[in-house]
Design a protein around this nucleic acid. Sequence first.
RNA 1: GCGAGAGUGGCGGAAUGGUAGACGCGAAGGUCUCAAACACCUUUGGUAGUAAUACUGUGUGAGUUCAAGUCUCAUCUCUCGCACCA
Length: 798
Amino acid sequence: MYDFKKIENKWQQFWENQKTFNASNDSKKPKYYVLIEFPYPSGVGLHVGHVRSYTALDALARKRRLEGYNVLFPIGWDAFGLPAEQYAIKNKIHPKDAVKENIKTFKKQIQELGISFDWDREFSTTDPEYYKWTQWQFLKFYEHGLAYKAKKDINWCPNCKIGLSNEESSGGVCERCGSSVVQKEKEQWMLKMSEYAEPLLTGLDDTDFQEKIKTAQVNWIGKSVGANIKFKIADTDENLIVFTTRPDTLYGVTFMVISPEHPILETLKSKIKNYDEVVDYQKESKNKTDFERAELNKEKTGVKLNGVYAINPANQQQIEIWVGDYVLMNYGTGAIMSVPAHDDRDYEFAKKFNIPIVEVIQGGDITKEAYKGEGPLINSGILNGINTKVEAIDTMVEYLEKQNLAVRQTNYKLQDWVFSRQRFWGEPIPMIHCDECGWVPVPTTELPVLLPDVVNYEPTDNGESPLAAIEDWVATTCPKCGGSARRETDTMPNWAGSSWYWLRYMDPHNNQTFASKEALNYWGQVDWYNGGMEHATRHLLYARFWNQFLHNIGLVPNSEPFKIRAAHGMILGANGEKMSKSKGNVINPNDIVNELGADALRTYEMFIGDYEKEAAWSTNGLKGCKRFLDRVWRLQEHINDKSGYTLEGLVHKTIKKVTNDIENMKYNTAIAALMILLNEYEKQDSITKQDLLILITLLNPIAPHITEEINALNNLGKPLCDSTWPTYDDSKTVADEYEMIVQVNGKVRGKEIVSTSSSKEKMEEIAMNIENVKRYIDGKEIVKIITIPKKMVNIVIK
RNA sequence: GCGAGAGUGGCGGAAUGGUAGACGCGAAGGUCUCAAACACCUUUGGUAGUAAUACUGUGUGAGUUCAAGUCUCAUCUCUCGCACCA
């Protein structure tokens, strides 16, 4: 019937030749910046999931262009990272070559879909011209005291003798050899993201992120307000400071627990009578992975410190101190006050080790479980008689503050960002270590610090980055004193390159700076950013942190990088499970493109269901969409030479529906509306050119190739990509007549076609005279009549 | 455990508090054909009825309302995110 392959190639060529989708940095039009999360070009090629989000945002971008905006809709590649490194090691090639191949495949696949990206702005995070600026920005962090080195645990496989990423050590076992992963301490570069916890939280108010995404961010930042309280250690000058959100329960504190890594253990060494036992416990928990330690339902373990006691500052009682690995060193102060009566974990611990449980909040049954609700305070000295939590907390903190035993404190779960990876395939951290001068930044004139072109970059067996083994590369001179020095061999994490890429798109070829002031000011914020839910926490936080920092040092105009952040749902296999090779339910988008065309695939993926929800693949559904496009194509055979709209009301209604639905990412109902329009057109003997033009214009953002071709074949006007988005007249969306619904006591008893201009009285009169309605109301008392103009009449009888 | 979201035909899914099931798929019957495929037409939540129509129906149970898939409360189930965070 028509050769979709030929048509799609033709228009893709046309757009490319005409540079239709190239954004201009000096346009009089209003700007609009549409961004999709750039892909990691894996060896497997494009996934149908990519097609869903790319098409959705493509439709938005295309519509915005027709509406007269200067649209920036770019794409690039997030190509550093482990899979490429491992693939390259396995095949004995350089990762950059592997990446080059993969990008080629991805690019071709994406181009065949007819996504309106501005390919002139394409780059990869692995391009030296790009990572030069990633390194440059790292040095800005360093310059402003936000990058520092600290000892941190890494996941370590004692068998393979290499450091592992969290992904490689999931479940607490090494992905390669299956042995259990331990923690090994190593000096690492860190970024002080914790300093930005509050701005990252309040900044959300300046965005229109989807609510679920805001929530994910808020949870991850994990703000909690409370106090740091000082507990004296009996018979010493030492103190233990704990963080708590519940100072009101202080009288219920019957013991303390400190983390095995807590430094006070060393300080109190001579006082602790069972120090050997403590050391054993420390070793034991060191060998546990984070995973094991955090495993729920696990029985609590701990060791009591013999010979030392703390003093409860509320009632001066001596209480036991325990070491337990359920207390984490990296949150709060690494020590807690335990209130077994009102905390599950403390309750469990106290029960196991026979520690007293003192109830201080009334309302539960503490013989059975910890009580966590509100209630009047009891057994609580100065707090007795207070009924609310807020008041009790305040009273207690004020009481302790006067004695210098407490300070109000806000804590965040958000930690500093571990910015080092012991890997080859990442941006080298541009620092040099000199024995004389310490850490010295690489001068910006010497950026980028390039990755060496070597053949061997297997991980070393001492936990260092593979770069450490490349002596030629490591040995350098100190930029400060000129003496011999060594390069930092750690590389940046995968998240680095994606933490500012949207800025580079604004001015991708600039070799003076990461993006010119003019470009940054012109494009400003990303108006609409789309990505997966899996990146709604970490990537989004890193990107916002990075941008807020650049803003604070005056390099970018906006504090928040993204106005809207939306998330698409996943596309599952036909069996409702996640697509995977092993399950054999993978659909390759390019098979579909070859078989039924890009337009059919695009239309189907937009029609598949609610954009935000996951959806299962259905080949029959796909065929239905292909059928729809075929029917649109056949409309060409029924054009008459009349002018105007044959179905004016419906046309205006459809423009309205499609316009609003694309704005709200309700593509499925937009397409449904177009199907309705088509169904009605088909019922006519023939339609006008305008009728056809309006349908294909509205369909164009979703199925751009076939609509352009129909437009050209029938001389309907200039190419659709150069035309304008239709507007609707609200008054024309209302028909002259409508079907009035008549209910009796809320149940539909009749329908009648009436004029839209009918008055309430007229509507009621008609309603009462419907035969079936009469059957219900005759002889009954009419209590009242509710009449909704242009809709319905409800007669309430007794 | 905490947080977010969702439960509607055989399936994917529509419904500013106002006709539940739009649109699509599938299925059944028909037209075309030697036949099939394609295409086209008709029907399609369930029960009863030739039909008009009636009853019933949005996870479950209450409630608010003239009117509830939609609002409120309770409850169950599922999905996702976070999780020994003090």
